[in-house]
């Protein structure tokens, strides 16, 4: 039952955040940078998980929400000279609006049709980025200068190119989104989302407007993914069309499947795992993608519900 162990649940999540905080001071430079990237991208995975894991809607177009945030933040800084906080908000707003529009159209479909429709929209978005190369930098992308990536509050200034500042900002975003996801999942809204995943017809017959609930989930998911994209642009100083390509629609799906769909911490675990397997494998051989592939296959064979999903099933039933 969901209220069986709220204390344990909160302790676990706060503990993970605290651990990540401490890691900043322990990790060697290279890994500190990698972790900052992983936390920013885990936000992408969490946004994807909200829709895929909890509502059961498999989108193949989430790269467009990530890149809506990426470009929404990046272009306002680059062309309009906006400050970092405004640009971040602009990125999230772009993602939320895009998700609203796409949701209104794509939610007329379900199942395979939904996958195809979202993929087509993402492809259109990708092509638009290339088409408007004069503003977006096309496939070359744009580099956001260090000077534009400084947050000045009053007299103090935070330089996002500083590795610790970058790490802490990534951690802050990750923590906020993790706690938001946890709150959603434990809320009445979250219960309805899971019910839709389990049996949408039945949920309607309990008086729920399932389309409206799914739309709300798409918008929340799109906004979270856009937050990840916006943070990525601002923290790492680069926007490029590759982030809008189909690969970036598949990646969050892989991360979530690996970590455990419909688990709050699965997206982090999956992203972390993928990054490190790739990193370690590429240290040994140039055929590292082969090793990554084998690792994925082994995981799917032995952990069909993802790492945390399997742990929840076998040992820790209370995991949210």
């Amino acid at each position: 039952m969901r209220d069986a162990s709220p204390a344990k649940t909160y302790a676990l999540h706060v503990g993970v955040i605290a651990l990540l905080f401490v890691l900043n001071f322990v990790l060697p430079d290279y890994h500190q940078g990698l972790f900052a990237r992983i936390m920013a991208l885990a936000v992408f995975a969490m946004g994807y998980n909200l829709l895929f894991g909890y509502v059961g809607l498999l989108s193949l177009g989430h790269a467009m929400f990530f890149s809506a945030g990426l470009y929404g933040a990046g272009l306002t800084v680059y062309h309009l000279g906006w400050g970092v906080p405004e640009a971040f908000v602009a990125g999230v707003a772009c993602g939320a609006l895009l998700a609203l529009a796409i949701g209104l159209l794509a939610l007329r479909t379900s199942g395979v049709a939904f996958m195809i429709v979202t993929m087509m929209f993402a492809q259109v978005f990708y092509l638009l980025i290339l088409y408007f190369a004069a503003w977006t930098g096309g496939d070359q992308g744009l580099v956001i200068q260090q000077a534009s990536r400084v947050i000045s509050i009053g007299g103090a200034s935070l330089d996002l190119t500083n590795s610790t500042v970058r790490y802490m900002n990534a951690l802050a975003l990750f923590s906020v989104v993790l706690l938001i996801t946890l709150a959603i999942v434990r809320s009445r809204f979250g219960r309805v989302l899971v019910a839709i995943r389990e049996n949408e017809e039945r949920t309607k017959m309990l008086g729920y407007d399932t389309v409206a609930n799914k739309l709300a989930a798409v918008v929340a998911s799109g906004a979270i993914c856009a937050a990840s994209g916006a943070a990525y642009a601002l923290l790492f100083g680069y926007v490029g069309s590759s982030f809008a390509s189909v690969q970036y629609s598949i990646l969050p799906l892989l991360w979530v499947l690996l970590g455990g769909a419909a688990t709050t911490l699965g997206p982090l675990v999956g992203t972390l795992f993928m990054y490190y397997v790739t990193d370690i494998a590429s240290g040994f051989t140039s055929a590292y993608l082969l090793i990554v592939g084998v690792a994925l296959i082994l995981l799917v064979l032995f952990f069909p519900k993802g790492i945390l999903g399997t742990i929840r099933e076998r040992w820790l039933g209370w995991l949210p």
Partner: peptide, 13 residues
């Protein structure tokens, strides 16, 4: 809802 507890099944309505 077979995968949800009896509690959650009734909590929805």
């Amino acid at each position: 809802f077979a995968n949800l507890t009896a509690f959650d099944n009734v909590a929805l309505p």
